[in-house]
Write a protein that binds this DNA or RNA. Structure first.
Length: 350
RNA sequence: UGGGGUGUAGCCAAGUGGUAAGGCAACGGGUUUUGGUCCCGUGAUUCGGGGGUUCAAAUCCUCCCACCCCAG
């Protein structure tokens, strides 16, 4: 049976961001009779904004009678999340910093911190479920479920994870937190890339990467020149907006030819893909135990697609019965069984 | 400077007397702990320019301009 949290974790630590979900996770654990403590890490160099948030968090924790431990992980966050993010864009692939952050920072550094404090588990406010096996499952709220972003967590990390909100619905969570502690310190925050305040990743990349490939041709699938692109890092597979090409119908990015600095575009019916390669496979279930048919997601909130996965070490070949939106290189591919269990995940290869 | 054709928003384009469709692009918003996708919304007091006919013209007449094609 699925339980909302693991039997271990008598002394759980909770990674609190200041938002609704992590604070509610904290409250719920305590209501279970455990003695949770809160961890808060700065991911960005602590400025006025970060300090204010920390102080408000401290105030909330104090009211709840829960210890709060604060860490400055801004340097590590930069080297382990932001730098790879920039490198990937510069290379022409499309990174997923949140998935990386979950693996390297939240269930990396914050989990380490918890263990150093004598803890044996880390809870977060993710909408996903874990079982003692350990196994990772989708959260119950289909509108909010976040297992996709956790697909790169190792079995060891999952074994120490607690997701108290896995069976919750977002609306209920908001109300529940409000009833317990009132509005959270970080209410109404935007949900985009946390280290790009204005959410303009193109500008961010341009300002942080010294040498970027410049403009080049935009061709259709038959080689006809339709226009000029302003740097391949500004486009991603399947992208429609920003091409600036008047045509009889919408055009989408079919391919990024990095060798020739060329963007290949085409109509929607040219967009389908039947297979893709996933590298850096992370197995949450032994390959020999996988079912014939799996369900894969190449991005958050994508309808899971039926597929067959051919596993081979750290690589997987994924084939789709019918063509659909092309998997984007650099993005996380999460693979599930029909019950919503995460079998594994990896990075879509170029 | 003989003949023919075309000229409607950034691009394509419907409309041939009754008071400017549509598509693409662009922009704005919504959805969203990544990028993208998707959804919604926004455009021409005006139809290359002037004059005329008419109650009424992008649609008819006329002159001019621009571009294209065929002839020299």
């Amino acid at each position: 049976m699925l339980s909302m949290s693991r039997s271990s974790g008598h002394r759980p630590f909770v990674a609190v961001s200041g938002g609704v979900d992590s604070l509610l996770a904290l409250c719920l654990l305590r209501e279970e009779g455990r003695s949770p403590e809160a961890l808060h890490g700065f991911f960005l160099p602590p400025g006025e904004r970060e300090i204010t948030l920390r102080d408000e968090l401290a105030s909330v924790c104090s009211r709840l009678g829960i210890p709060l431990h604060t860490y400055d992980f801004s340097r590590e966050f930069h080297s382990r999340v932001i730098t790879p993010f920039l490198e990937q864009y510069a290379r022409g692939v499309t990174p997923n910093p949140c998935a990386l952050c979950n693996r390297r920072i939240k269930f990396g550094l914050l989990l380490d911190a918890a263990r150093e404090l004598g803890g044996d588990a880390l809870a977060t406010g993710h909408y996903a479920r874990v079982t003692p096996e350990p196994a990772l499952y989708r959260g119950l709220d289909p509108a909010k479920e976040q297992s996709y972003f956790l697909a790169l967590l190792t079995r060891e990390q999952i074994a120490q994870a607690i997701f108290p909100l896995g069976t919750w619905r977002k609306e209920e969570a908001k109300k529940a937190l409000h009833d317990r502690v009132g509005p959270p310190p970080a209410s109404g925050e935007s949900q985009e890339v946390c280290f790009i305040p204005d959410n303009d990743y193109r500008r961010f990349v341009r300002e942080h990467v010294e040498v970027l490939p410049g403009p080049g041709p935009i061709l259709d699938s038959s080689g006809r020149r339709l226009g000029e692109h302003s740097g391949l890092y500004r486009y991603t597979l399947g992208q429609r907006r920003g091409l600036g090409i008047p045509y009889s119908e919408p055009l989408y990015v079919l391919k990024k030819d990095l060798e020739n600095n060329t963007l290949i575009v085409g109509t929607r019916d040219e967009l389908g893909a039947r297979e893709c390669t996933v590298r850096e496979m992370n197995y949450l279930l032994r390959p020999q135990d996988w079912p014939e048919t799996v369900f894969v997601q190449g991005n958050y909130r994508q309808e899971p697609r039926e597929a067959v996965a051919y596993l081979s070490g750290d690589r997987a070949e994924v084939r789709f019965p019918r063509p659909a939106q092309p998997p984007t290189p650099g993005q996380v591919m999460a693979l599930y069984n029909e019950d919503g269990r995460v079998l594994g995940g990896g990075i879509i290869s170029e």
